[in-house]
Nucleic acid binder design. Structure first.
Lengths: 334, 334
DNA sequence: TGCAAAAATACAAACGTTTGCGCAATTTCC
DNA sequence: GGAAATTGCGCAAACGTTTGTATTTTTGCA
């Protein structure tokens, strides 16, 4: 027999499928004796519950969908691990989709997950995504929605984000206190809450340290290695002696440019990144950066899902996680 | 209405669900006119097919399960992306599970996937996994099985692995040709085909280059950063002037030990890693390593699934992918 | 106009579970 | 000892699709 069903078990024991179903669910309306018997024969026959049928009948699944831009980013894969660590013990499992930073793929992923009747969706938006219609549909159809890292405002459900403002503030203030005089900023996409918050934190820190904000040394859309390399050249021409980078990859580009052009980091130039990618500590000089606790964020997002599922939280709610500055060589001016 | 079904559409148009079903499937047995009408109203009502019901009825799903030890390893997340790139266009989607290198979790993942009635399972075994019983059950219950990277022999289905033997051979031969005289080996778990193959390649290269195999400078279970650091000390005591490492993390440990102890790489000591992790090129000195084309491996594994699904391949079959040596500073003795 | 063939749609069962209800048989209680 | 409560299980419908077969409608042609 390919895959035994409860009907097969029922026939074998000359009882009805309903009793088998109840027994397997541990229902006490079935006597302990028959329950034991049923469980034993189920095991013998190699029975595995068909979750499709079960979920269809019950009208709900134990699967939650997670949509991330890319899973091969340290940050996202750690968030996933963090979420799994909460969800699996709670009896849920995760199906993961990538949006590849494309709006269309994000929408497709949402559709796929909804068609698969997931219990909820945990999402970090693609950078391309600017309209929240598709995401609003999630909520409208009764699904639990949790947004993390990159989140829209005004949507029902919980969002879990880093305190990007405070993180960037710390990073920039640290550069200022270390004695750098003209601090530029390699920013990200200004449509994303993540990067606007970091820029605001950067600006506030400048002001609080008696420096003026100079828009000409703020380079937007600059979170890749190439852009970091490229804009480092510009920043130097503009007289900068430090850069706060909204991403570690950009900071990597900065360090590489400095190396190629024999600019001494940290003595002549200071640089701080964001994210604490796994290579940050391995660079020479090691990169000062702000840690976003990805695993913790995954934990929180998963917990937020569970809380909403149990009706503990309603409406819009925001969780903000602090970021931690890790000081390494790249900003230690002596 | 929460989620419209084909029955709702049928009622609205005063036709039967079966016609609706066929129309949505594009069946020409329903007239073009009504097909168009049905599609339009379905869109208007925001209908989404319930895949649970559909799969239950059809007896098959469009989901394939993938089990990896850890998704936050560059290698595995790239394999996943590679598999997705083939599977999604083919109408399948992927559900990903982590085994955390634990046999128990691997078994659990297999169960979960089977209960979810996936069409097939693509797996790379956890290091702890040594018995193939659970995996054999996959095949027994009629599922398509594809193993990649870490694969068992003797199982029906396709396996896709790197040519670890040839890769390690190249790496070791390169060290020998570069003038290093006593080349040790940081090996991995000797129960895994991956690491035994690499060790064999290492040994063969030594022989072919007129060096003798000295088991005392082969350090097994040594693929972490810490172990690399630790065993580098031992290798130095044993008079080695080079190490071929079965993993980049171990090589990283080696480089760090050298840096801390003022040993010049590559002049005094040569090191080659395996995997080309993203940090490999960023180290100082940049790490010579063997690239395992993860994305390609994902492609092949996915294609192997499709081929089996279509009955193009039967029985046991093996695909071996060549590895490419990337020479960087860490082995360039002058 | 009539009739067979073809086209379009309807009917009903099935996929494997779960679950409200019903009905005996057994136990409990006063 | 008899009514009431409890226990243990069966019956049958339902979840939303799909699909083989039956039925109705349309078409083509003589």
């Amino acid at each position: 027999m390919a895959r035994p069903t409860i009907n097969d078990i029922a026939k074998a024991l000359n009882i009805t499928p309903s009793t088998v179903s109840r027994a397997l669910a541990g229902n006490t309306r079935v006597s302990a004796a028959t329950r034991e018997l049923i469980n034993r024969t189920a095991a013998e026959m190699g029975y595995e519950r068909n979750l499709l049928a079960s979920s269809l009948r019950k009208g709900s699944t134990d699967t939650v969908g997670m949509i991330v831009p890319r899973i091969n980013r340290q940050f996202f894969s750690n968030v996933i691990s963090g979420a799994e660590a909460i969800l699996n013990p709670a009896g849920y499992n995760l199906i993961i989709c990538q949006s590849h930073e494309r709006l269309e793929d994000e929408k497709k992923a949402i559709m796929t997950l909804m068609r698969n009747q997931v219990a909820g969706i945990i999402i970090s938006h693609s950078l391309e995504a600017t309209d929240s219609k598709a995401v609003a549909d999630i909520v409208k159809s009764g699904l639990v929605l949790v947004q993390f890292d990159r989140a829209y405002n005004g949507l029902e459900g919980i969002s879990v984000t880093n305190d990007n403002f405070a993180g960037a503030y710390q990073a920039t203030a640290h550069l200022a206190k270390s004695g750098y005089k003209r601090i530029g900023h390699l920013a990200g996409d200004i449509l994303s809450n993540v990067y606007t918050d970091r820029m605001e934190g950067y600006k506030k820190a400048l002001q609080d340290n008696g420096m003026e904000i100079d828009e000409s040394i703020i380079y937007t859309d600059s979170i890749t290695r190439d852009k970091g390399f490229y804009n480092m050249a510009k920043a130097l021409q503009a007289g900068c002696d430090a850069l706060y980078c909204a991403g570690d990859y950009a900071a990597l580009g900065v360090i590489e440019y400095a190396r190629h052009n024999n600019i001494k980091i940290p003595d002549e130039f200071g640089v701080v990144g964001t994210a604490n990618e796994n290579f940050a500590e391995l660079l020479s000089p090691a990169l000062t950066t702000i840690e976003q606790n990805a695993f913790d964020m995954g934990n929180r997002a998963a917990q937020a899902f569970l809380d909403q599922k149990q009706g503990k939280v309603e409406g819009e709610s925001k969780i903000v996680i602090p970021m931690r500055l890790i000081v390494r060589e790249s900003s230690r001016k002596n």
